[in-house]
Amino acid sequence: MSRRHPAGEAIREAFTEQPTLSHFSTYQQEDLVAQYGADRMVRMPIAENAMLGMALGMALVGRRVLFSVNRVAFLFSAFDQLVNQVATWRYMSDGQFSVPLVIRGLTRGGEHLGAQHEHVPYGLLSQIPGLVVAVPGSPNAVGGLLRTALGHPDPVVVLESPRLFAPTWAELPEPEPSAAALPFGVAGLARPGTDLTLVAIGNTVIESLLAARRLAEHGIQARVVDLRTAAPLDRDGVAAMVVPDRPVILVDEQSRSGSVLTDLAYHLVRTGAVRPEHVELLTGAPVPAPVSAALLDGLLPDAERIVRAVIDTPAPLTQRR
């Protein structure tokens, strides 16, 4: 594999173009330290709360920090700084200050690390006004969303699936034609189709695209929509993108309580983009992440479950008119 990861490219580009950009992390790549200097690529102790508070201080006085928190699970150790401080400055200061700050964190995907390491908290984070919550669904989308995040005036959390960085990342479905900057709050058409729409975010973009390939073998053409950001949520854009008068399946690894996709389902029905009987939610089980592989079976909506939801149910969704 000779292709360089789009995320690495986007980050190098930003550090080259922005002399006021710093990187906070407990781990720093030697080559990046050599290239940009240890004063910008800052090695930190395991102190997320202080790291995020410092990143906020830097941002408030005119710099920008990329804070790689490693697992997004570790961001919860900095929740005061995130919720009470970082997200509120622009509003509380009546626009005197902005917080150009990017937080990258890994979610979950095939690593079996368990309940204190594996989370997909975009619903949780999108409840915090003032934050952009970007959730790339492909390697190019990581690059594209990071590019936008690293030029954005407000705090952005980028939630990245470890699958997008696994050794086999280049073999994943790639709906984005390039890793050029992607706008926030604009859903993308990940695959054209005419029979039904799958609406997805993060890992479920991958699973929906894999499911769509298999459905095509059954003669069913599924359109796939990638939300790209959980906040802002492109409610009107998705309403305009779904196949008219056909079923919509919203696929989410989070459980359905208060989820982004439940919100979206309400909007689609309310605006008449889809009939109530044509909406289906495929969501994760409301349980912490177990470690044993046997326990993971069926907890998350994967391609298999999506295909089954479309063709194996007693009243197949595609035949509902």
Binding site: I46, A73, F74, F76, S77, H112, L113, G114, A115, Q116, H117, P288, P290, V291, S292, A294, L295
Partner: peptide, 25 residues
């Protein structure tokens, strides 16, 4: 029960009050 895996062992009978994968927690 397979839920904790390597990093989160807990055993009430032997008074092992859990193991956390969050540093210092």
């Amino acid at each position: 029960g397979g839920k904790s895996g390597s990093m989160h062992l807990a055993d009430r009978a032997n008074r092992l009050l859990g193991s956390t994968s969050i540093v210092a927690a």
